[in-house]
Amino acid sequence: MVMQRAKEGGFDLAEVTYHTSRAIGITTFLKNGADLETVQRVVGHTSANSGPRGQAS
């Protein structure tokens, strides 16, 4: 599913990394109605601040 979405999005499949595929998968879940709290638990984040965008610079 993730590689299919990457291909549909115009990504070069040779350049799709673990992090890229994870982000595509998470975005797909959210766009299809999954709630954020559930997605965070599935990917191992305990709060909105535990992901890379939530960390202070």
Rank of each mutant, 00 (worst) to 15 (best):
N49E: 10
G54D: 02
Q40G: 09
Q4L: 07
A56P: 11
Q55T: 01
A48W: 09
A56F: 03
G25S: 12
G9S: 15
G33N: 07
P52T: 06
V2K: 10
K7L: 11
T46R: 13
G9R: 11
Y18C: 07
E37K: 12
A6Q: 02
T38A: 11
D12N: 14
T28Y: 15
I26S: 09
R53L: 13
D12K: 12
H45G: 03
F29W: 06
H45A: 01
Y18K: 11
D35A: 08
E8W: 10
M3T: 06
R53T: 00
K7G: 00
V43E: 11
V2N: 08
D12V: 04
R41N: 10
S57E: 02
K7H: 02
T27D: 15
S47R: 01
Q4T: 09
A56V: 09
F11A: 03
R41D: 13
T38G: 12
D12S: 08
A56G: 03
T38C: 08
G51P: 03
G54L: 05
M3Y: 10
S57T: 00
I26P: 13
T20S: 10
G25I: 01
T17D: 14
T28E: 09
Q55I: 03
A6M: 02
S57Q: 02
L30D: 06
K7C: 07
G33T: 13
V43T: 12
P52S: 15
H45E: 02
T20P: 04
N49L: 07
R22Y: 08
E15K: 11
T28D: 14
Q55C: 10
K31Q: 13
R41E: 11
V2I: 11
A48R: 15
R5N: 09
L30Y: 04
F29T: 00
S57C: 04
T46Y: 06
Q55D: 07
T27L: 10
T20C: 13
L30F: 07
S21A: 15
Q4P: 01
A48T: 03
V2A: 10
K7V: 01
G54A: 05
T28P: 04
K7P: 00
T17V: 08
I24Q: 07
R5L: 08
G51E: 03
M3G: 13
V43W: 03
I26H: 13
L36E: 14
S21C: 05
T46W: 12
A34G: 05
T28L: 05
K31V: 07
A56M: 13
F29Q: 15
R5T: 06
R53V: 02
L30K: 08
T46Q: 09
R22L: 14
N49F: 03
T38L: 10
G44C: 03
G33H: 03
K7E: 13
V16S: 09
R41H: 08
H19S: 15
T20R: 15
H19F: 15
H45L: 04
V2W: 02
E8D: 12
S50R: 05
A23Y: 07
L36D: 13
V42P: 14
R5Q: 14
E8L: 14
